[in-house]
Simulated assay, not measured.
Amino acid sequence: MTAEGILALARSAGVGADTRVLDVCCGTGGAGRHLVRTLGCSYHGVDADAEAVASARHHAVGLSSTYAVHTVPPLPVGEADVDVVLLLETVLAFPDKHALASAVAVALRPGGRFACTLEEGTPLTPVEREAMPAADTVWPVPLAEFVSTLADVGLATVSVQDDTASHLRVATALLTQFTAARDRIEAALGATFTDDLLASHRLWRDWMASGRIRKFALVSEREPIDGVLEVAD
């Protein structure tokens, strides 16, 4: 995602100075640092990768943010503890979208919002799974099916933005840069890693260019309990 895209999604979810944000699968925390510096929110990031979390902590010194190693689901908070759950570029990694949505709904306060990016499309074919590195983390889903799953757990989708064009530009630029730096990447990380990096970015570029995969930014709101939205004093 671009920095502008991250901010646009966060703002559409109502992120501001008094917002408690939980960033699921935060990686090294770049998006979170951008949000804290720009919007002033209270931020907690979680990721299953301990090395990524250590890097996030190192780069966030002095910011209003915390990080923890945690595998999702469930989410590492109590019921109705969070104003906004953020999930960027990782919905595709969860084969069980219902379990993910349920965990998000539990964590959000009534009226709280779930902001995510979605890799939209039908499941990969056997041929596509064979071509995609780490295909066990690539589970696209049709938009209507995902919105229905959210609704099933009490998350009403209030905003849908087709951001395929922006993501295609990013994927194309990354592929160009990675290809140019192939020798340096291979020297540092090995041939297998480099081959997989280029293959995956080439596939994402081609799939988005052809319409096989579309990228959406969604915001969904946790519905009021018993039809009454709780408002803090």
Rank of each mutant, 00 (worst) to 15 (best):
V15Y: 03
V15N: 06
G16E: 12
A17M: 11
D18F: 08
T19V: 12
T19M: 12
T19A: 13
T19S: 15
T19N: 10
R20L: 14
R20H: 14
R20P: 09
V21F: 00
L22D: 04
D23Y: 03
D23E: 09
V24T: 04
C25Q: 13
C25F: 12
C25V: 13
T28P: 00
G30D: 07
A31Y: 00
R33E: 02
R33Q: 02
H34G: 04
H34K: 08
L35D: 01
V36K: 01
V36M: 05
R37S: 14
R37H: 10
T38E: 14
T38K: 14
T38S: 15
S42I: 13
S42C: 15
S42H: 15
Y43A: 04
G45S: 15
G45Y: 08
V46K: 08
D47R: 08
D47H: 10
D49Y: 06
E51H: 09
A52S: 14
V53L: 06
V53F: 03
A54D: 03
A54H: 00
S55W: 00
A56T: 00
R57F: 05
R57S: 04
H58G: 04
A60I: 00
V61Y: 01
G62V: 03
G62A: 01
L63R: 00
S64Q: 07
S64D: 13
S64F: 03
S65P: 02
T66R: 03
A68P: 06
V69I: 06
V72Q: 07
P73V: 13
P74M: 07
P74S: 11
P74K: 01
L75I: 11
P76A: 03
V77S: 11
V77Q: 07
G78N: 12
G78M: 08
E79C: 10
A80T: 10
A80S: 12
A80N: 12
D81Q: 14
V82L: 11
V82Q: 10
D83H: 13
D83Q: 13
V84C: 08
L86A: 10
L87I: 12
L87K: 11
L87H: 10
L88T: 02
L88R: 04
L88Q: 05
V91Y: 00
V91E: 04
